[in-house]
């Protein structure tokens, strides 16, 4: 029963658009970072040897994509915390709206804005990077949305556990950015110290990076079935766990 899902989703989109700062934060900032990085690395790339720009042009889209994902997850954690603290969740719960309808609506809104941000980035990115015609953009977008959903479930778990809205953002940040550090994006997971390798393998972002990089390279979904399976498994596990510990008020 998803009665009210579209209405609620549409309402949440409108409410989100009415907060200019929020739109700027979740759409504008990742694009801005992307452009700044592009400028710095783009001009450097022309000067140094021909191997370097290739490495950069491969990783930057993935870093940028993950920045979108990170801001998506953070804003979900924040909004759930704010809604809970403000008694909005409680109010919604006393209606025929099912709990998962409310969460699904928020995920849809977040995914929509993730896709929009990615689209803008691709448009802006053309100025700095000649995106290879062989890059499967549709598959890449799907892979990014899939990774985002998986990471959002981790966001649910954090949102379920943080006591107040004020803690939501910093705790989310504390979890997300170190995760980005060991995800294999900046250095291969195999080159990390053994302890960190164990940590990296337990975190969804590592698999997201592997999947996104592979798809960008044109390796195809089958080559990354393992990543997809792990991300799907983590999604199921985190969702199941967060429905157990979720507090509505």
């Amino acid at each position: 029963m998803l009665r009210g899902l579209w209405k609620l989703t549409w309402l949440e989109i409108k409410i989100f658009m009415r907060e200019p700062l929020g739109v700027l934060g979740s759409v504008g900032i990742p694009v801005l970072i992307f452009v700044v990085f592009g400028r710095i690395l783009g001009t450097q790339a022309e000067r140094v040897s021909s191997d370097v720009p290739r490495a950069i042009s491969v990783d930057l889209p993935i870093l940028a994509s993950l920045l979108i994902t990170a801001s998506t997850v953070l804003s979900l954690v924040a909004i759930i915390a704010i809604y809970r603290e403000g008694g909005i969740l409680r109010r919604l719960r006393a209606t025929p709206l099912r709990p998962y309808t409310i969460l699904t609506a928020h995920v849809l809104v977040k995914l929509l804005f993730t896709a929009i941000t990615l689209g803008i980035m691709l448009l802006v990115g053309r100025r700095y990077y000649s995106v290879d015609a062989g890059v499967p953009l549709v598959s890449f977008t799907l892979a990014l949305l899939f990774s985002t959903v998986s990471l959002l479930s981790l966001g649910f778990l954090v949102a379920s556990l943080v006591p107040t809205a004020r803690f939501a953002q910093p705790i989310g940040t504390l979890i997300l950015y170190p995760m980005l550090g060991v995800s294999g994006l900046f250095m291969p997971v195999a080159s990390l110290p053994p302890m960190l390798q164990v940590v990296a393998r337990a975190l969804p972002l590592t698999y997201a990076v592997s999947l996104l990089r592979g798809i960008w390279h044109g390796e195809g979904w089958f080559a990354h079935a393992g990543d997809v399976a792990v991300l799907a498994g983590m999604f199921l596990a985190f969702t199941a766990l967060s429905t157990k510990v979720f507090r509505w008020e």
Binding site: G86, G87, R90, R91, A94
Partner: peptide, 11 residues
Amino acid sequence: VQLQAAQFQKR
């Protein structure tokens, strides 16, 4: 149902 000290999305 009307709940005590209920709130709604600001906007």
